[in-house]
Amino acid sequence: MTTIGITPTNPVEPFLRTDRMPHIWCPGCGIGTSVNSFARALTEANMDLKNVAIVSGIGCTGRVAGYMKLDSFHTTHGRAIPFATGLKLANPKLNVVVYSGDGDLFAIGGNHLIHAARRNVDIKVVCVNNLIYAMTGGQTAPTTPGDVVTSTNPYGTYDPSFNLPYLVEAAGAVYVARWTAFHVRQLARAMEEMFTKKGFSFIEVLSPCPTLYQRRNKMGDGLDTMKFYKEKSRIKNGAPTNEVALSKSGEIIVGKFVDRERADYRDLMHDQLEEVLGDQYVEAEACECSI
């Protein structure tokens, strides 16, 4: 197959299933931008790609798994995290990344997310937050700020929204950061750093949805949103997460908010069982399912 018109030197290309292009994302959407940062982070972190698995739920961001040239699992709505939990526990050598959207991870999947954070399962979660249910046409999400128009709040939203870093920190994550689709280098560096952490790690990526969120709220296109992010963002590493809630047009606090150490689920399990069972304990190896 010829690759006329495609530059083979694009550093991201080896990470993509190019036979699945073009992708489904709209012009101006930030999901592809985040994937670019993710691919760069994989390179910079010298990850052994054979041992990186990516798990997505359902939605626009849920399609990320399908475009990455990795072992990739496109699961059910909201359940990427429990799938990833099983994958990681059965095969601990894998670096398991969950890549999904705000509605998937925090509405239908919210219970799984807080419990995985509580257990401190060693999975890395990238949440692309476009403040809306995009795949289904722009309905209100648990992240949608107040006083914006959505297809299910045509007269403006009044549901209070989640502050994702605050919630995830409270649930027990060892690493919590937020960047926007404008901060591509910072985002790539945060992802790279996330790979060095052991335990439940979380990065929120604020992303435009020009088709449904910005357009319906007369906030311009993707480029206008980049300008908005640039203007409104303030880097504040270590900011108390209860002070980083998003609003329709207010300041966007970005940076690394949480970076702490805590025994992960497998270590906790191992230490407890070994202490109580002694010689009787047989550690679960990476399951080689020969039988």
Binding site: T76, T85, G86, A90, H112, H115, Y281
Partner: peptide
Amino acid sequence: PTVGGTFIQMEDELAASITLQGAVWGG
């Protein structure tokens, strides 16, 4: 734990019924 394996108690049956599938794909 005496045979070499894992039991995890999940937060609900939705999780239980997909966590095992992740484990299957893990081997």
